[in-house]
Design a protein around this nucleic acid. Sequence first.
DNA 1: AATGAATGAGGATTCATTCAT
DNA 2: TATGAATGAATCCTCATTCAT
Lengths: 216, 216, 216, 216
Amino acid sequence: MQHDAAGRPRLRRVPQQSRSRDRVEKILDSAAAQVVRHGVEAVGTRSIADAADVPVASLYQYFADRDDILLALVERDIEAMDARVQADLAALTRFTIRDIVAATLAAFVAVYRERPAFVMIYLRGRTNAAIDEFCRAHNRQIARALFDLASDLGLLVEDAGPRHAEIAVEMGDRLFQLAFATDMDGDPMILDEALKVLSAYLELYASPAGLKGVDA
Amino acid sequence: MQHDAAGRPRLRRVPQQSRSRDRVEKILDSAAAQVVRHGVEAVGTRSIADAADVPVASLYQYFADRDDILLALVERDIEAMDARVQADLAALTRFTIRDIVAATLAAFVAVYRERPAFVMIYLRGRTNAAIDEFCRAHNRQIARALFDLASDLGLLVEDAGPRHAEIAVEMGDRLFQLAFATDMDGDPMILDEALKVLSAYLELYASPAGLKGVDA
Amino acid sequence: MQHDAAGRPRLRRVPQQSRSRDRVEKILDSAAAQVVRHGVEAVGTRSIADAADVPVASLYQYFADRDDILLALVERDIEAMDARVQADLAALTRFTIRDIVAATLAAFVAVYRERPAFVMIYLRGRTNAAIDEFCRAHNRQIARALFDLASDLGLLVEDAGPRHAEIAVEMGDRLFQLAFATDMDGDPMILDEALKVLSAYLELYASPAGLKGVDA
Amino acid sequence: MQHDAAGRPRLRRVPQQSRSRDRVEKILDSAAAQVVRHGVEAVGTRSIADAADVPVASLYQYFADRDDILLALVERDIEAMDARVQADLAALTRFTIRDIVAATLAAFVAVYRERPAFVMIYLRGRTNAAIDEFCRAHNRQIARALFDLASDLGLLVEDAGPRHAEIAVEMGDRLFQLAFATDMDGDPMILDEALKVLSAYLELYASPAGLKGVDA
DNA sequence: AATGAATGAGGATTCATTCAT
DNA sequence: TATGAATGAATCCTCATTCAT
């Protein structure tokens, strides 16, 4: 990560032009392909650039860093994930804690399956501080959103707080890491376990409505 | 991996001298330590050599390649694992399918816990073709050995074949990878599940004796 | 420095528009600040442009080159210096060789102190052919002007020629470089010595009037 | 400057082999030539290596860094300077404070004149922390040696301490920087001034013998 | 057998400059 | 005129590997 004179990390410039957007997408696609093919550590600026048919120097138009490219990959995938979760939850006609958990997990699985590069980078996130940090922050954000939803619908008891949601999300995160560690489709057994574990945990904080369900 | 003029991989020279053996062990120990501390990709010939207090060039007396060192690490660990499995099985006084599975899994867990470098390399095995190939071959070999044992003891039905054992071993392999992916001691929940899953699977092919047990 | 198709150096476009003039000044001010802060070699187009709040590409509207910016800086400062010398000399009511030398040196010192960037670039001028060349030419020009002044006032003997003035100017130039090499205000001891040395030298070529003085 | 895993700067390997020594000398000579020709900032690893007819990577056999090469240049020159000072002082048959100062300054001037690259690097030392630090330490060391000599010969009064010698050396150092800033042979006027200033200063701490002299 | 020395190939990143609009 | 975007060339440096002794 580059830093400016004042020591703050230089921000990646987010291009708004459509031409640029295409190029960025191409770069990210190439990077994703390389990651899937050869692993996170093996992708270099050169291989990304070559695959994207872009000069190496041009990468630095759009990204601060090699790491920044990987981070962008994760961000892109996470955005897709958020969208999917939101859509799937919006499609529910009846809400229980378990339904919300199931829909969320299903959305995650669907996106993971579509985006194998995400799985690879995410799993090795430990190699890369920026990615790690970003994902952690995102987990908190997701937890908050889910908590707000359940709370607004009256599915939770008084005691329940955003903290509980965070714990659940972190657990789910871990389980997904495990499930996708070696199986790019997500080990179904662990995915099943994930649903059971998370539901059981969160139902400890469910109101009667949270168990019985409320209509949308 | 180096290749000779004919394109075949150059074989690692296996030293027989005791002085050499000490050095090889020291190198492997150092490499293992580095792997555990900094991850597979971060380990270079220099860091291994420095840690082993051996000149870098001397690594090539004992190993063909950087990859070859990692492979040797895996081989060494796998040998330990085989020995442990054999010993633990030999210690059983009564054999059921489930006992064999349990003893084997326990042996694996014990060795994994003693040898964290193995876990790290094995998990990232995909980075390294040689290691991947070696492990796959070893899995088949283990499967065969276990099948022969159970078969000789009359624990299996007629339908059972080495293929089933292979499937079980591969499943166990996967589950271990998952269990150790984030927890260097092996996620106990997954390890428990592993025992249940593998036993249940293999008992589908168990003879009555395989369920009830036979004396040693 | 850029060159056109015929190999001649491309001339810097001297903008006449007032809007442009403002921008050029801003660019030069920024460049000067950067030079003083970080040294000549550390100043890049990007840092100049950022500091001037101007797009990098716009620098090339006004300057042919990175070098050309530094050269323009020197030119601007030299123009100020010339004006100051002229004004200070015009303010004299009585002229001796020593008075002219003193006034000239004082004018130089005053300008150097106001324009630290000039000192830095000039001292490292050797890095930059264009600047070196320009300064040498200017030295000759100043020497000629001072010689003409003293000559017209009858302060010099017959033997005296522009060449002697040039030597004096070069000596003075060197002494200034020395005086400002480490002390941004000019080492006073060297500045004093400069006055003594140059006066003594030039008085070797002074007419009686040159020593006694003439009224303006 | 490189750093090892523990954060300490990786030491430059000082080669003892004669073959290596030749190469190191060749590299340093090339670097010196480049510095003199194009200035300190313009010398890169590539240009040094090319000029020395050595692969770039080989530079890193002998030097930790680009900076380290420049530092080595300075060290080599400083060693020569120390040797020269020692020899010139040993040649004196009669010792006064002034004689010691004169001999020392003369030795410095002689070495500076032989080694223009040293002058250039030393003057820009401010660019390079390692060089700066090294020179400062060396100044202290020289001061100590000169003080010990004068002290042993009984040339100093009781009050005199190594601290005074350090001040004198620092002053001399500055004056040399000035004298050689623009004149590769050392501006004679400043060199003369240097002798006067330093002698006068140190004679404040001279014993009668220090003024009158003692035989070797 | 052992190793200090040597190196080609490649790593990420920066920079001055040009181009298309 | 003005400029965002684009890039070739260069930067320093690392690494696995080989060679000569």
